[in-house]
Design a protein around this nucleic acid. Structure first.
Lengths: 227, 227
DNA sequence: TAAAAAAGAACGAACGTTCGCTCTTGCTGT
DNA sequence: ACAGCAAGAGCGAACGTTCGTTCTTTTTTA
């Protein structure tokens, strides 16, 4: 599968780095970068990529423009950094897919964990923003595409395994099946159902049913066998 | 603001207005408004709501700022008018739901027609843009909510009818079922699968299966009965 | 020919970014 | 261990540009 989580030397949540030999200077620098990114996320959620001004971000981060520009050469570079970090968070879904008794359990666990994460951090709107930006910004778009590519590989892997285990029997080839699965997943995340008052716990059996009924062999109740 | 391009007395697809007694002046005025809206859509798809400038729109519409501002008092009013017109187009889905031998056929026809329409007009990105804008702009948000409300009513109606006809047997109450259905539908439209190389014709059986398997009674192949 | 429509230069505000300057910091030689 | 200092970090006014919008003038129309 080859995922390559942490291609650009990221540390998913532990601070892995040997810590030593990294000068204090570099350490502080990293902390400031994180501060700016966190502030930017807040502003972008509040006002959108285009709508949020650098002054707004400076205010939120508690620093002057001059200071901020020592860490990022432009507003666009902040947007790109945020898209990139969002991509990594999404990929964390995939790393969870191996957990659970069956692949379907793993799949569900991964999705539910991500839904909870998005809702807890209030970063749902950022997803919409990134999607819109990717329509126009080449760098952001290729970032999204990279992410999508990895999802496609993981889903293909998932389908293959689950099929081999006799758990599912998809009605169409991966070529159409996977894009539909991804579109459905995006829709669920986009809609931020938890924000609309649907409890995440109510959602789980619903989504499990959606996944299973979609991927399982066509049952006797179907009007006709499509394939 | 307020604009009120023929109020919210929606005329789903006919142009209700009596037509008669509308002077040539008013006629031209309406034509100009449409010209501006069409040009704006193009620009907004190309550059986004915030990214497109009024000068860009003027250029696309082939008129000067002075002229354009005779028809719309502000950029925001254009955005709102477009959101509103988009809402009407969406609602056209609902009016098609009655067609077809069964309610499920009607449902599918409506969805497929909308997918084709979105793809043919290239207005997919506009949907993303409106969604992002609705997170921030009160007027656009309430426009989207109005639309959503009508969808919820229609879906509830659909579910009731289909259940009564013995076609479906949902596993959850409308309260969670409908939001999930809408999220899935949004995901499908958002993703603009046709743009990604999935042929719409391949999509149809896929989506039909998705709909039917999601709404039908849990079959013997399910690992457990959820309800 | 009066009123409506269109044009396009011009406006102030706000934007992203830069610049000159002042603090602060962590390394250095002793 | 510590004073001295270069370089990094921070500041905030100011820059040039571009934005949405307005205003004055000219052209078109009924």
């Amino acid at each position: 599968m080859e995922l390559d989580l942490q291609s650009s030397e990221i540390t998913l949540e532990s601070e892995a780095i040997p810590a030593q030999s990294v000068g204090k200077r570099a350490e502080n620098r990293e902390a400031q970068i994180q501060r700016i990114l966190e502030a930017s996320k807040k502003c972008f959620v509040r006002s959108g990529f285009r709508g949020a001004s650098m002054h707004e971000i400076c205010g939120e981060a508690g620093m002057s423009p001059g200071a901020l520009y020592r860490y990022f050469p432009s507003k666009e570079s902040i947007i790109e950094a945020i898209s990139e970090s969002h991509r990594r968070e999404e990929l964390a879904i995939l790393s969870k897919m191996g957990e659970g008794p069956t692949v379907i359990d793993g799949f569900m666990n991964a999705i539910m964990a991500h839904l909870r994460h998005v809702h807890a951090t209030g970063m749902g709107p950022l997803f919409t923003e990134i999607k819109a930006e990717s329509l126009r910004n080449e760098t952001v778009r290729s970032c999204c595409q990279k992410s999508e590519g990895q999802f496609i590989v993981a889903f293909a892997d998932f389908i293959e395994t689950a099929t081999a285990q006799g758990l599912i029997n998809p009605i169409a080839p991966n070529k159409t099946l996977i894009p539909v699965m991804m579109a459905v997943g995006e829709g669920i995340i986009f809609s931020d159902l938890a924000e609309q008052g649907v409890s995440i716990d109510d959602l789980e059996p619903m989504l499990r049913h959606l996944t299973e009924s979609f991927l399982r062999p066509v049952g006797p109740n179907s009007p006709k066998k499509e394939n």
